[in-house]
Amino acid sequence: MTPATSLDGSARIAEAFARAKTEDRAALIVYLTACYPDAALSKACFEAAVDAGADILEVGIPFSDPMMDGPVIQAANQHVLEAGTTVTDQLEMIASLRHLEVPTLAMTYVTIADTRGYARFADELAEAGLAGVILPDLPISEAEGWLTEATRRGLATVFLASSVSTDERLEAIGRRSSGWVYATGLMGVTGVKSVSAALTRPLVERVRTHTDLPVAVGIGVRDRASAAEVARYADGVIVGSSIVRAAGEGDPSGAPDRVAALVRELRAGVAER
């Protein structure tokens, strides 16, 4: 056990946001698909991301039918599944990241958690050293069973908020979330369009009226400029597809260096505000 895991997931995440805040910047949250391009390089990519300044990691557990993901993350999921990698293999890779001093959350689809059984899945995530989980197709109205298990294991559960969410739903999202609230930066799937400030800024402000949790913006943030733009009004900036693209393009052995280069850019962006 590393010292970090003596705190529950929410507290570790809160610390990461607080640290960024003392540096007068937004927190940088970096997503990569587990075991992409392979287990060893994936581990190296996550380590490189942390060295380059990521504050929080999201590790995607691949699903065959990722409804909220655009072509880049779909292809990464497909690649990992076609390599014959199982969820157990991915959890093993994830457990190898526990020495990193940043909180790490699993991002996957409810089918994966449900098929394994919520109790077992929560146990395995906690044992792998994870701080929390994001299930984009588990809305608050269906989340009760999962939340019971997540809470039991000290895992944070981050819910998504959308510009179409009613105030009533935003209130419930704020109340049920732990770690942060994930404000979606546009109407759409990952990695296709750019963040829409016109939709996102008012959403972040609405979420803040319902919760004291940090609010991070993801979907549509891809580079230094868009990270800087979002950092002006959000507590955290989540980047996924462009990092997965960097990991995947070119010689696989160069993936960690390419990830590090992009993360450095993004880290500069979140401090620009």
């Binding site: 409804m67 197709d137 809305p139 959308s162 179409v164 009613t166």
Partner: peptide, 9 residues
């Protein structure tokens, strides 16, 4: 209703 929040409305 196991759907992303964006479809709730």
């Amino acid at each position: 209703q196991y759907v992303p929040e964006a479809l709730s409305g």
